[in-house]
Amino acid sequence: MTAHSHHPRPAILGQNQYGKAENRVVRIVRDGDTHHIKDLNVSVALSGDMEEVHLSGSNANVLPTDTTKNTVFAFAKEHGIESAEQFGIHLARHFVTSQEAIHRARIRIEEYSWERIETSESNSRFIGADEVKHSFVRKGQETRTAQITYDGSRWEVISGLKDLTVMNSTNSEFWGYVKDKYTTLQEAYDRILATEVSSQWRYGWSSDEDRMPNWDRSYAQAKKHMLAAFAETYSLSLQQTLYQMGVRVINSRSEIDEIRFSLPNKHHFLVDLEPFGLKNDHEVYYAADRPYGLIEATILRDGAEQRIPVDMTNL
């Protein structure tokens, strides 16, 4: 008899969640003639006593996803949007405390930044340059991210950023690596190092009794420290640079316990210009978009446990 001849066990419901994804909410605060924008993409995922809706289709415990959408927009008015993290905290607390069947809420937010368009004095005769404080250009540098999870007693806040493209045009080498019969890459003693930073960091804050971080200041400082480390590390590998970026954040920001990076190596290859009788002295490069090396790692505060998902593409 084979092991497979026994009666198979029945199927059971595993982890499940539901909610409304990608609610695009824009809040304008009018401070006299000066306007301020908060532009978020908010995704809500709720879980709890949801067996019955899967098994029999009974919606008795189901708060409609349309209602979660409405709540996002209503909260933008009722609570304002101080920061992505604070807004997510308000939403998560509301869903878990107001609905008996909901035991856990996870709010994921992308924030798109805008900056004011400066107007020239010479145009003052049109609208009045002093009055033009309502025109904005979307910032292209990076997208800020936040994930807030609440289960009724414990909070987990993971902030981050993505699409932050950086480059060192020198002070990077790559040599001394393993070579086998398939290796064709030449060793490099002066190369361009470029990457598109995707990073998430987890805060030690986990209960209302603890002092809540200043989310905006913490974000700005984490970004500042990772960029400083990228610029100041003489790099022998992208792994070494990644590690220095993480160490700098952990050592500089006591409120952050864990940081994870996903760094695609945006390869720049020297173009062979010899067929045209030209010498290429680290001047002309081909920027390849794929395939790319992908370097990923987590840096932890000593004693902290790793909680950020290894595959961060879903954050």
Rank of each mutant, 00 (worst) to 15 (best):
R106P: 00
D66N: 09
Y150M: 04
G303R: 01
E115A: 08
L40T: 08
K133R: 13
A3G: 12
L227T: 11
Y285C: 03
L270Y: 01
H90M: 03
S218K: 12
Y112G: 01
D210Y: 06
R24M: 06
H134R: 07
L13N: 14
T67L: 02
T34R: 09
P10H: 15
A105K: 02
E131L: 12
A287V: 13
Y203Q: 00
S153T: 15
E283G: 06
V310P: 00
D180V: 13
V284S: 10
F136E: 12
S43A: 14
R202D: 08
V132D: 01
Q99L: 14
H225L: 14
A220P: 02
G14V: 09
I28D: 00
A21P: 01
Y182H: 13
Y292D: 13
R260P: 00
K38L: 05
V132R: 08
H267G: 08
V157N: 05
A101H: 14
E305Y: 03
I37T: 03
Q99D: 11
Y292H: 01
Q239L: 14
I102H: 01
Q240A: 15
S159W: 09
A287R: 15
N168A: 13
L263G: 08
G14Q: 10
I81Y: 07
R138T: 10
N251P: 00
L13Y: 06
L46T: 09
N23K: 02
Y292K: 13
A287L: 11
V72L: 03
H35V: 04
Q147M: 13
A3T: 11
W175C: 11
W155R: 06
K162M: 06
I102N: 07
P64Q: 01
P10D: 15
L242V: 11
S199L: 00
Q306G: 14
L164M: 12
T145S: 10
V249I: 14
M167N: 10
Q147T: 14
R93W: 02
L161N: 04
L270E: 00
L315F: 09
H134C: 13
S207K: 15
D190F: 06
Y112M: 05
I299F: 04
T67V: 08
E22I: 04
R144G: 09
S83Y: 02
A92K: 01
I37H: 03
F230R: 14
V271P: 01
G140P: 04
W175P: 00
F261G: 02
V42K: 07
Q240R: 07
A84D: 11
E209M: 14
A129W: 11
E131R: 14
Y286N: 06
H90L: 00
I299Q: 08
R307D: 04
I250Y: 03
I256L: 03
G152L: 11
I256K: 08
D31M: 03
M1E: 01
K224N: 09
H4P: 00
T67Q: 02
F174I: 08
E82D: 06
L13P: 05
S198W: 00
F95G: 02
L161M: 08
G204Q: 13
N265S: 04
L278I: 15
S43T: 10
L294C: 04
Y292F: 06
D190W: 09
V157P: 07
S254Y: 05
N251C: 01
G160P: 00
L164I: 04
K223H: 11
L13T: 10
L273H: 09
I158F: 05
G204K: 10
D311R: 13
T183D: 03
